[in-house]
């Protein structure tokens, strides 16, 4: 269980490491600010103390966040590695070999890479119109619905899944592909609705009106003006949905077992029935999509193009 958590939180940890590093470093010069000109020596001492405290804090933070990942990385390539040893004595790829030779594990990898894109696509198709409606129309119950989307993420999911399982049994969805897709969809709805809705709201209505004015019908306005302008935000939402689906374990386990065991659900078995290295290798594999997609999002999506487009209000 503990190792599964590693895998699931890895992507988030890396991302927040990137974010918080900037924040903490940015905070440093401020710590030096209260240097009172009247008592220079004391101020210098105090400044130095602040600086040391800041460095210690960053180091602790890095150890806390990078530590588990580093351990995981070492573990995946090591042979026997027991408590008093500071680092592994012998190196081996046996963990990797075992993962890629095990048909169960290979199958779970394939399943994961099938479910995540399908769930993301379904979520996009279902939630984008909802996001547009939330952004552009004022209808009764709008606020209630918006908040209730959050509510599905605010309460412990397992409770939700268990009551869903009841419904799924009566609909014969337990153990089916569709059942797994639906249960994974639940976790993506909040991203695919809130983020695009905010993006749609940020697009001045006059841009759409101008397109209507030159002769475009409502659908064409959406696909030629609204969608391209919201595309970066929609891409971010799709990445988050993909990762939410990819990392989803509880609901998939409940609904999919024994027919559909994806990578995160496989972690349950892995921790109990396989050598430690195999679990470490699998954790790393599970983390790869998160890291890659987050890096991609930072590089290509958060950039200036969106902001630049909105210099005109």
């Amino acid at each position: 269980m503990g190792k599964r958590a590693h895998g699931q939180t890895l992507g988030v940890a890396v991302m927040s490491a990137i974010e918080s590093e900037g924040v903490v470093l940015g905070g440093l010069p401020e710590a030096q600010l209260p240097a009172a000109p009247l008592r220079p020596r004391r101020a210098v001492v105090r400044g130095a103390a602040h600086r040391i405290a800041g460095v210690v804090f960053i180091v602790c933070l890095l150890v806390f966040m990078i530590g588990p990942i580093a351990w995981l990385a070492l573990r995946a390539f090591s042979g026997l590695w027991q408590y008093p040893q500071l680092y592994p004595k012998d190196w081996t790829l046996s963990g990797w070999r075992q993962v890629f030779n095990d048909p169960n594990l290979r199958h779970s990898m394939r399943l994961s890479f099938e479910f995540a894109p399908i769930v993301t696509a379904a979520s996009t198709v279902i939630c984008l119109p909802a996001a547009y409606a939330f952004s552009r129309y004022r209808f009764p119950g709008r606020r209630f619905l918006l908040i209730s989307l959050f509510a599905t993420n605010a309460f412990p999911k397992i409770g939700l899944y268990i009551s869903m399982a009841g419904v799924f049994y009566s609909l014969n969805l337990m153990g089916t592909f569709l059942g797994v897709v639906i249960v994974q969809l639940i976790g993506t709805v909040v991203f695919m609705t809130w983020i695009p809705a905010a993006a749609f709201s940020a697009i001045p209505r006059s841009l759409e009106e101008a397109a209507r004015d030159v002769g475009a019908g409502p659908l064409r306005v959406f696909f030629r003006v609204t969608f391209p302008l919201a595309a970066p935000a929609i891409l971010v939402a799709m990445i988050l949905s993909f990762l939410a689906s990819f990392d989803e374990a509880q609901g998939t386990f409940l609904v999919g077992v024994p027919n559909y065991i994806t990578m995160p659900t496989e972690m349950y078995t892995l921790v109990l029935n396989y050598p430690e290295q195999v679990a470490a290798v699998f954790s790393i594999l599970l983390a790869i999509p998160s890291v890659v997609l987050m890096a991609f999002a930072r590089k290509h999506v958060m950039g200036g193009r969106l902001a630049e487009g909105f210099q005109l209000r």
């Binding site: 006059s206 009106e209 030159v214 019908g217 487009g309």
Partner: peptide, 20 residues
Amino acid sequence: LSPDKRPTAMVFQNYALWPH
């Protein structure tokens, strides 16, 4: 008639040029 169906053309206060 909706805007796309009438022979009018508008210049908006914020110009509403499509940034993309």
